Amino acid sequence: MIRVERVYDLKQRGAGAYFLVDRLWPRGVKKEALPLDGWLKDVAPSDKLRTWFAHDPKKWAEFQRRYFAELDRNPEAWRPLLEAARSGTVTLLFGAKDVERNNAVALKSYLDAKLREA
């Protein structure tokens, strides 16, 4: 099972593995205060894609298409998440304000599709 949660909304850690999937560390969050099993910078969108998207809702569909293409070219980055999800709950943590259109939501969709393929 894969979940997504905003870093700033995380009250306490539940069961499973927690991974930060942003390329940049969330502002104002101390590293020791975030209960992580890993920070997977390489699974995040490229800087070029991230700045192009700029959390513009009108670009969401195209952002997902481009991001999925990046993920297809970099399976080493997301395979650990897929393996962890096969054996338990995985929470993808993100820092964006938009909880519906961000890289963690897109990544969850991508990984869910990979789990269904298996």
Rank of each mutant, 00 (worst) to 15 (best):
A17T: 08
F19P: 01
W25Y: 07
K41E: 09
E83W: 10
R13K: 15
G88D: 07
R101L: 05
V105C: 08
Y18N: 06
P57A: 11
R13H: 07
R6W: 05
F68K: 11
E83V: 13
I2V: 13
V99I: 08
F94G: 00
A17I: 00
K114P: 01
L20D: 01
V7T: 02
T51V: 13
R65A: 14
D22E: 13
Y67W: 10
F63Q: 03
A54P: 00
R13Q: 12
A33D: 13
A104E: 01
A77S: 14
Y18C: 05
D72T: 05
L111S: 05
W78P: 10
P45K: 08
L111D: 02
D42H: 14
L36A: 05
L107K: 05
L71F: 03
Y8C: 07
W52R: 13
L82S: 05
L92V: 06
V90F: 02
M1V: 11
R6C: 04
F19H: 06
K48R: 14
D9P: 00
F63H: 06
R6N: 13
R73A: 15
D22S: 08
G88C: 09
W25R: 02
K114L: 14
A104F: 03
Y18V: 06
W78I: 12
Q12M: 10
R27Y: 04
D42Q: 14
T51H: 15
R79L: 13
G28L: 06
S46P: 06
K41W: 04
L81E: 01
E76R: 15
V99L: 02
R13V: 06
R116K: 14
A118P: 02
Q12S: 15
K11R: 15
E76P: 02
E117A: 15
K58A: 15
A85T: 04
V105Q: 12
M1G: 11
A85C: 07
W39T: 04
A104Q: 07
R23V: 01
D22Q: 10
Q12R: 15
S87P: 00
F68E: 13
L111M: 08
D112Q: 15
V21T: 05
L20S: 05
P57N: 09
P57H: 08
F19T: 01
Y67H: 10
T89D: 07
F53T: 00
A96R: 10
R66P: 01
E5N: 08
R86Y: 05
P45F: 06
D9R: 15
Y8K: 10
R23H: 11
Y67N: 09
A69F: 04
A113L: 11
N74E: 12
S109L: 12
Q64G: 02
Q12P: 00
A77E: 09
L71E: 02
P57Y: 08
Q12G: 10
P57L: 09
A69G: 06
